[in-house]
Design a protein around this nucleic acid. Structure first.
Lengths: 209, 209
DNA sequence: TTATTAACCTAACAGGCATTAGTTTGGCGT
DNA sequence: ACGCCAAACTAATGCCTGTTAGGTTAATAA
C-alpha cells in the first residue's frame, strides 16, 4: 500500500508523508488500538504532521477508515487468489485448500496492517462505512465460495457440507487468530498447517486402519 | 443477571431500574453497538434516567463495563460446566465435547447479552478493564483445557493435538459466530452440531469403509 | 526570476464526553 | 406523623473530538 500512485509523486519538502503515508500509519494504529481510541490527532502525530493537515488528503475520518478497510480486503483477496492460481492445474483439492488457508493467514498475520486492521475494527466503525466496504467483501467471499464449491463438486469435500456456512466458519476461525496470535510462540505458517489439519481431518482419534 | 442481590431489594419508586437494571441495559447496548459508541448518556436514556444518576450505582464507566465483562464470562462458564457435569459419568468423550460446544454457543447466541457483549467489546475496552477481566477468563480457559486434556488422555482425541492451541481455535471459532449469526437462518443448536461435526471429523470426503 | 501548486500549519468552532457536587423526591419503618 | 435513605435530578466542570477557514512554505515549471 505504500506504493506510489499512478501519477508521478513529487518528493517535495524534507519529509512529505503524503496520502499513502497517512494511510499506512492509520492502518497500523487501527490494528494496534482499535477504531474508537484512534483520533485524527493521534494519526497526525504519528505521521509527524498536524491534525488539520489530514484534510488536505482526505475529506473526513470516515474516508480514511473506509480506504483502510477496502485495502485490507483487497490485499488478502489478492494473496489468496494468487496462492491458488499459482498452483498447477492438476493439483489435488486438499493442497489447494491448504494453500488458500495459508495465504489468508499470511496476509492477516505476517503482511498487512490493512487486513488486520479491517478484521479488528470492522465491527466498530459506523454503519455507513461498513456498508461501503461490503462490495469488496462480497467479492472475496465469492472467491471462497467458488473454491469450496469446486472442491465439493470434485469429491474432495463431503457432499453434505453447506458452502456458505463452511466459508463463514473457516474465515471466522482464521480471523479470530488475530486476538491471540503471538509471533514469538509460533509462525503463521505452522499455525495454518494446524488449522488445515483440523478442518480437513478433525481432531477425533480414528480406530479404522 | 437480572436476579436480585442477596440482600432484599426494595421496590422503591414507581420505576426503579436499580443497579441490575442499568447493568442489563448496558450489556444489551454494548452487544448491539460496541463499546465506543455507547455513552453513559445513552445507557441512562435507555434506562429512563439521567446520566449523572448512574453514579449512584457505579463509580465510573469502567466499573460498568468491567461488571458486564465479568458477568459475561461467568455466565458462559456456568453454562458450559453445568452441561458437562450433568452428563452421566460413563458418557463417551465425543458426546461430552459436543455438549460443551453446544453450551458455549447457547450462552453466546441464545441466552446472554453479557456473554455476547464480552466477546464483542473485549478488544475495544481500555487495557486496565481488560486486565481486570483476565482472571475470570483464565478460569474459564482452564475449564476447557481440563476437559480437552482428559479427552486426550482417554484416547478420544488424537495424541498430537496441542491443548492450548486447540482451545484457542475452538473458542475463537465459536465466538466468531457472533459476527454473522442470524437466528432467522438457523438455530444455534443446529449450528453447534455442524461445528462439532467439522471439528471432530473434518470436512474431507473419506475413501475408507 | 516569477508563478504555480502540493503539502503543510495555525487557530478556532461546536458538540459530545465522563465526571462532580449539591439538591430533590417519595416510600418505609417506627 | 416523622425522619431516614435509596434513588433519582440539575447544573456545571474541563477535556477531547472531528472539522473548517485562511495563511505559510518550499520545490518545481516557465
Amino acid at each position: 500500500m505504500a506504493q506510489n500512485t499512478a501519477i508521478k509523486v513529487n518528493e517535495t519538502s524534507r519529509s512529505a508523508v503524503g496520502r499513502d503515508g497517512v494511510l499506512d500509519i492509520a492502518a497500523r494504529l487501527f490494528r494496534e488500538q482499535g477504531y474508537g481510541s484512534v483520533s485524527l490527532r493521534k494519526i497526525a502525530e504519528a505521521a509527524g504532521i498536524k491534525a488539520g493537515s489530514i484534510y488536505y488528503h482526505f475529506g473526513s475520518k470516515d474516508e480514511i477508515v473506509a480506504a483502510v478497510l477496502d485495502a485490507g480486503i483487497r490485499v488478502v483477496h489478492a494473496s489468496m487468489r494468487d496462492a491458488i492460481t499459482d498452483l498447477r492445474a492438476d493439483t489435488d483439492g486438499e493442497t489447494v485448500l491448504r494453500a488458500a488457508i495459508r495465504a489468508h493467514l499470511h496476509a492477516l498475520l505476517d503482511v498487512s496492517d490493512y487486513t488486520s486492521a479491517n478484521v479488528r475494527i470492522f465491527g466498530q466503525v459506523p454503519q455507513s462505512v461498513r456498508d461501503a466496504n461490503l462490495p469488496t467483501r462480497r467479492a472475496y467471499e465469492a472467491e471462497w465460495d467458488s473454491l469450496l464449491s469446486q472442491l465439493k463438486k470434485d469429491g474432495t469435500l463431503k457432499q453434505d457440507v453447506d458452502i456458505r456456512r463452511l466459508r463463514l466458519m473457516l474465515i471466522g476461525t482464521l480471523n479470530a487468530t488475530l486476538d491471540w496470535f503471538d509471533p514469538d510462540r509460533g509462525s503463521a505458517d505452522a499455525l495454518s498447517r494446524t488449522y488445515a489439519d483440523v478442518f480437513l481431518n478433525g481432531i477425533l482419534q480414528r480406530q479404522d486402519t
